[in-house]
Design a protein around this nucleic acid. Structure first.
Ligand SMILES: [Mn+2]
Ligand SMILES: [Mn+2]
Ligand SMILES: [Zn+2]
Ligand SMILES: [Zn+2]
Lengths: 153, 153
DNA sequence: CAGTTGTTTTGACAGACTCAAAACAACTGC
DNA sequence: GCAGTTGTTTTGAGTCTGTCAAAACAACTG
């Protein structure tokens, strides 16, 4: 199927997302955003490795800089699970949370614990003005549970 | 006041806490526990600096090792706020949470968001068995709010 | 198409933490 | 009390993740 004059490629969408955030559009930025959309919860290192597959000249520092710029612009969200480098994802602005498997490191999204605007309202805010809440549930995923269960017998 | 035969010094309490966790009692361990009780939410580096005041021979690696041992034994809790080294505290087992000031780095305790056992029950656990939840509220403390307010005028 | 501004590369470097081996100290039981 | 066993600490090197600054470079502006 040929694309008509008014149609937009996927790359075009990425470009306007970046431009819409007030950032200049560059090849490494398009690549980073693309990687992040296909592989959420990626570390800088993982993004870097993936980006290099299509843009081999890209430096690690560029990736760090791009991730910081995107995070600052609200295009991506960064979070810091324990015992892991920072992870990045495009799902932003919905205050969702994460399940982290202690066994294998798997990360899964979880919707906001209480419905509504919640999770941004602690029982006593001590005068703080709260902008965001980071909730990480640490546990064992289904796979790691079955891998350990036999050993208990 | 002289201490009778049955009385316990503060150091004695620390010692039996450590022994009760199944760990050998050593001077650096007693010192670390003492520091942590007086200064919760301390980094390894801060604990190290404080310990050296009374036990100047102690190495940084010892402090890292002790903190890891204490954390493993359930004697202290470790948490990882964004943009900060890991912090340690003695308040353990109550699943409490933290307010972190984006401006000055102040950390404050918050009781569990929902009362009861909560915060350990995400809306959908995807089959995970959950052991702990780490909740960090990011915002501005009262002081940082007033420091910034004038600039808005 | 040249100018301005923001971006990327390059290379050095720092912070937080880990690893391994040897020296050492705490508990065990004689 | 004292040697043995086991766990701890020191020492020293090294890793991983991320930061800084300057120069080369590319995107948007008009
Ligand atoms: Mn997510
Ligand atoms: Mn606390
Ligand atoms: Zn798992
Ligand atoms: Zn503050």
């Amino acid at each position: 199927m040929a694309l008509g004059p008014g149609s937009q490629t996927h790359a075009d969408v990425l470009r306007s997302t970046i431009r819409g955030a007030g950032l200049k559009v560059t090849a490494p930025r398009v690549a980073v955003l693309d990687v992040l959309q296909h592989a959420p919860h990626s570390s800088a290192e993982q993004v870097f490795a993936e980006v290099r597959k299509s843009l081999s000249g890209t430096s690690a520092q560029a990736v760090y800089g791009i991730l910081a710029a995107f995070t600052g612009a609200g295009l991506v969200r960064r979070f810091d699970p324990p015992d892991s480098p920072a992870l990045f994802e495009c799902r932003v602005g919905d205050n969702h949370h994460h399940l982290a498997c202690i066994g294998c490191g798997l990360i899964q999204d979880v919707d906001c614990v209480i419905r509504e605007a919640p999770c941004l309202t602690p029982s006593d805010d001590s005068g703080f003005t709260i902008f965001s809440a980071e909730v990480t549930f640490n546990g064992l995923c289904r796979t790691c549970q079955s891998n350990r269960a036999p050993q208990t017998a």
